[in-house]
Amino acid sequence: MRPDDWHLTEDIDDFLTRAGDFLRSRPALHNTPLTMIEKLRTRGADAYGAEATLFGRLESGGEVRAIFYRPPSHRLTLTPLSPEQADTLAAHLADLGHPLSGVLADHDTATAFTETWQRHTGATPDHSWRGRLYRLGTLTPPQPRPEGQGRVADAQDHEHLIRWCTEFAAAVGETPSLDADSWADSRFADKHFTFWETPDGTPVSMAGSTAMVGGMIRVDPVYTPAHLRGHGYAGAVTVEVSRAALAAGATDVVLFTSPANPTSNAVYQRIGYVPVTDFAGYNFSDDAPEAG
C-alpha cells in the first residue's frame, strides 16, 4: 500500500462525488461519517468553524476502499482499514505535518493507527472512549410494556431537552456545557427527540435520532434519569424511535452503547439490536513533538 493511494482534498463536493457510493455501501458501519459529513455539507463552515475539514479517500483498482475526515478539532475519523493501510496512512499524515488531536474508528483500525502515529510523532495516546455498535434486526417490543406512551418532543420541550442532554453528556464523560445559547452548536441540536411518558403525562425517558442519510438512522442519545431507571422506560422509548425510523424507510437503524454497561447492552439486545463491532477513540497528547 503506497501513500499516494490516498487522495486528500478540502473540497467536500468533490469528495462526496468520488466517495459517496462507498460510504452508502455499508451504512451501518459508516454511520458516523455519513451523519457528520452530511452535517458539514448542509451547514458548511458553520458546522465546525472557519477552518476547512480535510477529507481523504483510499483508492485501489479504480475503487474507493476507505475514507477519513479531519475537522478543525483535528480528531481523525476513519472507516475500517487493514493494519498495513492504517500504518501507511498514519505515516503519510505525519510526514505531511497534519496535526491530530485523536482518532476514532473501529477498535482494530484505531489501535493500529495509534501505534504508528505514536512511533512517528512521539504523541502519547489515551484510550478515551469505547463503544459497541448495534444494528436493528427484528424489532421486538419489551414485555411487559411499561405503562405510558411515546410522544414526539416539540418546541415547548426545549428546556427539558437541554437539561436532560446536559445530564446525559455528564453521565457519559462529555463536557456538560449546554444552555439555550450553546444548544444550536451542540451535537444534539440536529436530533429528533421522543419522550416516554407515564399515563399522567410525566416524561420519564428520552431517545433521540439522526436524520436519515444513505438509508441509515442512528438512535442517539438514550437517557433515563437515575432515579427512574429499572422500569423498562429506556427500552420502550428506544422501540418508539426505532419503529418511527423503520416507518420513515430506514434500511439500517443503529446505535452505540458502552461495552462496559451490561444493562444497556442487554436492553438493546432484548428489543432486537444485534452487535456489529466495537469502536475505540484515542486522544493524543498536546505536548508531543510536531508531526513531520
Rank of each mutant, 00 (worst) to 15 (best):
S205L: 14
F15K: 13
E38R: 06
F168D: 09
R130F: 15
A171Y: 04
A266Q: 10
Y134S: 14
F284R: 04
D278K: 12
H158C: 12
G131D: 03
A90P: 03
T175Q: 14
G281I: 02
S25K: 07
L100I: 00
P3Y: 08
P262N: 01
G272D: 13
V64M: 02
V172M: 11
R2Y: 04
R145A: 13
L96Q: 09
R24E: 06
D13Y: 07
P99S: 07
G208E: 10
V237C: 09
P275M: 06
T109R: 02
G61R: 10
Y48H: 12
A45I: 01
D287E: 01
A280P: 02
T124E: 11
V276Y: 15
R18W: 03
T138H: 14
N265A: 12
R2P: 13
F256A: 06
H74W: 07
E240N: 11
A45S: 15
G62A: 05
R75S: 06
H92L: 02
V172R: 08
S177F: 14
G201A: 03
F195W: 06
T124K: 13
L133I: 03
P199K: 07
A170N: 09
H192C: 10
G281F: 05
T111E: 07
A234T: 01
T124C: 11
D200G: 11
G122L: 00
R24F: 14
T277M: 07
L34V: 00
S258F: 04
S25W: 01
A91V: 00
L136Y: 06
Y268E: 09
R132N: 09
A189H: 01
H7N: 10
S209R: 13
A47S: 06
A50I: 13
Y282V: 10
E167V: 15
H30K: 05
D220Y: 13
R145H: 12
R187D: 15
